[in-house]
Amino acid sequence: MNVRRDEQAAIGHAAARLKSAFPSVDPDTVDALVEQAHDALSGATIRIYVPILVERRARTMITDGLGPFGPSAPPEAEHREYGATAWHAHDR
C-alpha cells in the first residue's frame, strides 16, 4: 500500500466533492484552495487524517473566504486562521 498515493486519491475525491458542492466557484480556484490546505498540512505526522482535514479547510476557505463573490474578490483581504490566504466578501 502506498500511503501517499492513497492520500492523493482521497484529496482528489475531496476536490471533486467540493466542486460539486460549489458549482459557482471556478474549479481552478477550488483546486488552488485544496492545494493550499494540503500544503498547510505538509508536516502532519499522522497522514490518515490529512484528506478530511484538507477538505474541511478548503470548504471553510470557500464558504468564509470566497462567499457569493467567487474568485473575483479582492486579493488584498487575507484570511490567516488556517494558515492560508483566502478572500473575504465582507472586506469589499
Rank of each mutant, 00 (worst) to 15 (best):
A58C: 05
E76D: 11
S72H: 07
A32F: 11
R92V: 10
H88M: 07
A84F: 09
D6H: 12
V34K: 01
A89H: 15
R80N: 08
G65H: 04
L41V: 03
T29S: 14
D39E: 06
D39C: 00
A15K: 09
N2G: 06
V34G: 00
V54K: 11
A44H: 06
P71Q: 07
R5V: 05
V50M: 10
S42E: 11
E35T: 14
H13R: 13
W87C: 05
H13I: 07
T85R: 10
G12D: 05
F69P: 00
P23M: 12
Y49D: 14
L41P: 06
H13D: 14
S42D: 14
A77I: 03
S72V: 06
L66R: 09
R57M: 11
Q36H: 10
L18H: 04
V25G: 08
T45E: 12
D64L: 09
I48P: 03
D6S: 12
R4V: 04
P71R: 07
T63R: 07
S24L: 02
D28M: 15
F22C: 07
H90F: 06
R5K: 12
L66C: 09
A44L: 01
A14W: 09
P74F: 00
A89C: 10
G43T: 06
E35W: 08
L41D: 05
E7T: 14
L66S: 09
L41I: 02
G65F: 02
E76C: 08
P51I: 03
A37E: 14
A14P: 03
D64P: 00
D31L: 04
A84T: 13
F22W: 13
S24T: 12
I48R: 11
R92L: 12
G43I: 00
I46G: 06
A58L: 05
D91V: 02
A40S: 13
G67D: 07
E7D: 10
P71D: 13
S42I: 04
P27S: 11
D39A: 11
A16V: 04
S24G: 05
P75L: 00
E78A: 08
G43P: 01
V34S: 01
T29N: 02
S42G: 15
R59M: 11
P74W: 01
A32M: 03
G83I: 08
A77V: 06
P74S: 04
A15H: 06
R80D: 14
H79N: 15
S24N: 12
R17I: 00
L53E: 15
A37F: 15
P27L: 00
S72L: 07
H90R: 12
F22T: 07
A37K: 11
F69E: 15
V3W: 03
A84Q: 11
A16T: 13
D26R: 05
P51G: 04
H88C: 08
L66M: 14
E55N: 02
N2Y: 05
R57A: 03
V30K: 10
I46M: 07
A21Q: 03
Y82Q: 04
G70F: 00
T63L: 08
L53G: 05
V3E: 06
R17N: 08
R57D: 03
A14L: 09
A44D: 11
L66I: 15
A58Q: 03
P75I: 00
R17P: 03
M1Y: 03
T29I: 03
Y49T: 13
A73Y: 05
G70I: 01
H90N: 09
D31T: 08
Q36S: 14
I11A: 02
H88R: 12
A9H: 14
D91W: 01
R57F: 10
D39Q: 10
A21V: 02
